[in-house]
Simulated assay, not measured.
Amino acid sequence: MSWMYLMVAIVAEVVGTTALKASDGFTRLGPTLMVIVGYAVAFYFLSLAIRVIPVGLAYAAWAGLGIVLISLIGWLAMGQRLDFPAIAGMLLIVAGVLVINLFSNTSAH
């Protein structure tokens, strides 16, 4: 269940960060409220996840997947360019998260 909490936290953080762009510096109420709710939900579920998942492992997955998802949303929905170095860097981040999860002795209890 802790991995499910972490996935909810990641998705909520991605929603909050996407809304952050749309909030236009917190000048638009709807997106600003989405930022607040998204981050509140994200941190709540992260706090539940790290009851079982080691904090370093949870944060690596959170940050890595968040970066990739936000970049994909920027590319697909906001027309932002992703050049080869950006794509290569994101692949390395994903590879790093996979290495930690698959091969590290750091594991959930």
Rank of each mutant, 00 (worst) to 15 (best):
Leu92Tyr: 04
Glu13Leu: 05
Ala58Phe: 02
Ser104Val: 00
Phe84Thr: 11
Pro54Leu: 11
Met4Pro: 00
Ala77Gly: 00
Leu57Phe: 04
Phe45Met: 13
Arg28Phe: 04
Ile100Trp: 04
Ala49Leu: 03
Leu92Arg: 09
Leu76Arg: 11
Met78Gly: 11
Ala12Asp: 04
Leu33Phe: 08
Ala88Cys: 12
Ser23Asp: 10
Ser23Gly: 05
Leu48Trp: 05
Thr18Asn: 06
Val11Ala: 15
Met78Arg: 14
His109Lys: 12
Gln80Ile: 01
Leu98Glu: 01
Ala58Asp: 03
Ala42Glu: 03
Asp24Arg: 15
Ala77Leu: 14
Leu33Asn: 10
Gly38Ile: 12
Leu98Thr: 02
Ala108Gly: 02
Ala42Gln: 07
Tyr59Ala: 06
Gly16His: 03
Asp24Trp: 14
Ala58Glu: 02
Leu98Val: 04
Gly64Phe: 07
Val55Glu: 09
Leu72Gly: 02
Ile70Met: 08
Pro31Gly: 04
Leu91Ile: 11
Met34Tyr: 09
Gly25His: 12
Ser23Lys: 10
Val99Phe: 15
Gly79Thr: 06
Val97Arg: 04
Tyr44Gln: 04
Thr27Gln: 13
Ala60Phe: 01
Arg28His: 09
Val97His: 02
Val14Gln: 06
Leu98Ser: 02
Val35Glu: 08
Asp24Asn: 15
Leu46Asn: 01
Ser47Lys: 04
Val35Ile: 08
Phe45Glu: 08
Leu82Cys: 04
